[in-house]
């Protein structure tokens, strides 16, 4: 083989390796079937081109490009100024529906950013490739910190203004706690007293007996007895001395008591 051919073969081999590398890093993907989506954000929380896209935690694509769209408005009229173009594999495309949510999330020991897509419900439509959709802006930690600074400042101001009453309140609370503690100690001591224990035992027994009694009073037989007694009393109510005497005489009984 000629020298030129050998050199050419090596050069061709290196070109093949470049193509293989481009395929491995996802620059070219002739056999891959992917769909595009444009996710709109106002704050993307540090996501970068090449960051993974995950559906239910599984990597199904990547962020292809990030661009600024200062004049873009959603159909609802909301201005959204950041467009993130993502690719989604065909296998996961049907899981993404119109009610899917697009979050920016953190994972791994080094805090890698990724775009998480929540699966949609079946009754919702699928997206069309290249469609625009509003993403969920991630919380801004810097804003939260600055707001908490403001809150802390206001708290300090309130404390400074009402220093006397706050001190008084704390003193009262301290006294209340002390008293409560004393009461608890007293209760603890009382519960260990023998007489008190016996008294409590008896109270429990009385309570049990009363419960048994009242249960008996609520029985069916008892209710029938109440009815009979009630009827009897109703009938006895108009009775007086002459009537009783008359009744006893008619029965042939001599009653001297009247």
């Amino acid at each position: 083989m000629k020298v030129e051919a050998k050199v050419g073969l090596l050069g061709f081999f290196s070109l093949v390796l470049i193509v293989v590398f481009a395929y491995l890093v996802g620059l070219i993907s002739p056999l891959r079937d992917t769909y595009d989506l444009n996710i709109m954000y106002n704050y993307a929380g540090g996501i970068e081109e090449g960051s993974p896209v995950r559906v239910m935690g599984i990597k199904v694509g990547k962020v292809r490009s990030i661009s600024f769209t200062p004049e873009y408005k959603l159909p609802s009229g909301e201005e959204v100024k950041l467009k993130i173009n993502i690719t989604v594999d065909k296998k996961a495309w049907k899981s993404i529906r119109k009610d899917s949510k697009f979050f920016i999330n953190l994972a791994g020991v080094i805090g890698e950013k990724f775009l998480e897509v929540s699966p949609g419900t079946l009754d919702q439509e699928e997206f069309k490739s290249g469609e625009y959709v509003r993403g969920e802006d991630p919380p801004r930690i810097d804003q939260l910190i600055s707001q908490s600074y403001g809150l802390a400042g206001k708290l300090i101001e309130i404390l400074n203004k009402n220093e006397g009453s706050v001190t008084n309140m704390i003193t009262q609370l301290d006294k209340l706690t002390t008293n409560f503690n004393k009461t608890l100690t007293l209760l603890d001591k009382t519960s260990k007293n023998k007489d008190m224990v016996r008294l409590l035992d008896n109270a429990v027994k009385i309570s049990d007996d009363l419960s048994y009694l009242t249960a008996g009073l609520r029985s069916k037989k008892a209710e029938e007895s109440y009815d009979i007694m009630h009827k009897l009393l109703f009938r006895l109510e108009p009775l007086d001395g002459p009537s009783i005497r008359k009744f006893l005489q008619s029965e042939g009984i001599k009653a001297k008591i009247f």
Binding site: F21, A22, L24, V25, G26, G50, P52, K59, E112
Partner: peptide, 11 residues
């Protein structure tokens, strides 16, 4: 390996 590589390496 390739997944981890993809996370850092670009063309």
């Amino acid at each position: 390996f390739l997944t981890a590589m993809n996370r850092f390496v670009q063309f």
